[in-house]
Design a protein around this nucleic acid. Structure first.
Lengths: 352, 352
DNA sequence: TAAATTTATGTGTGCGCACACAGAGAAATT
DNA sequence: AATTTCTCTGTGTGCGCACACATAAATTTA
């Protein structure tokens, strides 16, 4: 049948040493003569030794601790999703002696992020995952992780930093391209489309700027249709009435407006403040399968939602740390772009 | 910190018995007095015992064998995908002492399916996964599995049979609906669309019939657009010239033909036999990210591919058996519909 | 040269569990 | 009453590994 798996004992016999010596070689604990070391390495190679994960984890008999630092989901429904993914991941890795602990910070306060981060660093876990929403603070935290030997994974917001083991998230630029394609689809002749940013500190939201770049590039490269891109930034998006007024101004100024691209998960705010007939005349593209967006999709107020797989972002982040810390896999992909799913009424059910 | 996990020894102490007795209760091996049994059950409940998977699998010291019975991928490139998924799954579960072995059968020969199935039954594995492409043979195999206590998972083709642990695949009906939506999108006025079946025994391909039903239902329910659905069946789809002739006949007979829906993964056969300008004028929707389809998508000969997540079908099938046989999870979902991804040039990269 | 230190190696124990086995006692059979 | 069978229970061993510890040999220091 299947060739019995090679054990440490087999290696020891082959190399003419004891299991203890093989163990020291495997874990690079030192105190092995160069001669013995070489014989062990040869035997490992020759017999194709693979560590028995079960026995290894059992004997190790210590929990691996992972901390997830995430925005409080009460401040923005979007964050329920990565959090759900983290919880699924936690459940999955729990049998293998891995504990996942979540800490929350206020989405809109850098100081709180720093405070929570410091609390984590006081009792350093083996792994940490977080969305580096605040560039400076994120880089600082990654640096701290490097110093303390904490394996760090970032998700949701991409910052290029070698100190992190992997980034897991969407390709913001390309999601802008895709949104443009969806608005452009079936259109011909002259028209306008609106890029709507509903965000507090837009200048700092680099992923929104990336989406905009992709969005504009698409139209620039597809000369076939003559589309004008308008942009509207609304920082006080919670104020329904104010938002409505600004939108109506735009609709009035640009009668040829055929579509709106809401650059984040807040398309429902747009849909909430305009009447259905107006919405139906516009093609609307938004992001993410949060409950409020789904209702508007079902009601056909929103035409497309681009799913950034935010649940999977949380899940994959935990699993990446598991693969690094527990499976000890080498050469994990440092960049994991998740699919940009096009969601319409007809296929939404399968993404829930 | 975290409350130390409860061990069998703890339960034994609490119930005033030995670990052996607890073990007998846990595994329902019998030879336990009703009195002791009850005390153990109470202790388990009260202390919230959870089996330590690592130790359990280690001590069990037997491999769990899973067999995948799949169409030979050389007969149809589609099947490379579920196979790739099965291999990924195999790699994942391998550390936990689970062996996955794959056997292939000829996609077009029921007798070969039966032959391979019989070979498997001679040395029954703990788990079996297969696509029940042949209804009768599939049901027979499921019945055999039930008799022999083999956990069976079906994928790709749905047959309702309680003998199987789970079905993993797409919702064929809804994929027809979605295809219709994609063809209908942006269309107005009178037009024709073609439903193209490229399959050997169409009458037996129930999933194709389901797709057709969904496809037609969509148009029936969306009276807004006045669309006529044509249907063309081609069994000798390998004959490029013959296929081309039949398609040109259709194009000639129906000048208002605006779109084609190829009901399986063979849209590339259509795209192969018509010139690009003709293809560009048509909107074409097909299934699955097989290499040949991808090329035509990139070349904009095909507009949409509906991804049935065939890789994930293989992967999830293996993982479902892992959850059943190894994790011993109860109440696994008996029906796992995977998403129907809408794939266009702009987001194809993320599905590969 | 003896003692202290460092390097090198083997042995032993326990992680939590599954399962074989040995008994003790009760019940059934001779 | 003696034997056999059956029910019930506890103990012991091993799964493969990590790590502590003991010990021997080599090296340095006094």
């Amino acid at each position: 049948m299947n060739p019995k798996r090679v054990r440490i004992k087999d290696i020891a016999d082959k190399a003419g040493v004891s299991t203890g010596t093989v163990d020291r070689v495997l874990h690079e604990r030192g105190y092995v003569s160069e001669d013995a070391r070489q014989r062990v390495l040869d035997a490992l190679e020759e017999m194709g030794y693979e560590r028995n994960l079960l026995a290894s984890a059992l004997a190790y008999n210590k929990a691996i601790r992972i901390v997830a630092l995430m925005p409080d989901k009460s401040t923005d429904p979007y964050w329920e999703q990565p959090f759900a993914g983290v919880e699924q991941g936690a459940q999955f890795v729990q049998p293998y002696g891995i504990e996942v602990e979540t800490r929350f910070f206020n989405l809109f306060e850098r100081a709180d992020f720093r405070r929570q981060a410091n609390a984590i660093l006081e009792n350093p876990p083996a792994g940490l995952l977080f969305p580096p929403l605040f560039l400076q603070e994120g880089q600082w935290l990654l640096e701290q992780c490097r110093e303390k030997g904490i394996a760090a994974v970032t998700f949701n917001t991409q910052i290029d930093d070698a100190a992190c083991l992997a980034y897991i998230g969407q390709d913001s630029y390309q999601s802008g391209v895709l949104a443009a394609r969806l608005l452009n689809f079936g259109l011909s002749g002259k028209a306008s489309v609106l890029l709507l940013n509903l965000e507090k500190e837009i200048a700092n939201a680099r992923h929104l700027l990336e989406k905009e770049r992709g969005f504009r590039d698409y139209f620039a490269q597809h000369q076939g249709s003559d589309i004008q891109v308008l942009r509207l930034d609304v920082e006080q998006f919670e104020d329904k009435e104010a938002l409505r007024r600004q939108l109506e101004t735009q609709l009035h100024k640009h009668p040829d407006l055929t579509g709106v691209f809401v650059s984040n998960s807040r398309a429902y705010r747009l849909a909430d403040c305009l009447p259905s007939p107006t919405l139906r005349k516009l093609r609307i593209v938004g992001f993410d399968l949060v409950a409020a967006n789904l209702q508007h999709l079902q009601a056909e107020n929103i035409d497309f939602l681009i799913n950034q797989n935010s649940v999977e972002q949380g899940y994959n982040s935990v699993l990446t740390l598991y693969r690094h810390l527990f499976l000890k896999e080498k050469n994990l992909p440092a960049l994991q772009y998740l699919p940009l799913d096009i969601v319409v009424v007809e296929n939404v059910a399968y993404y829930l």
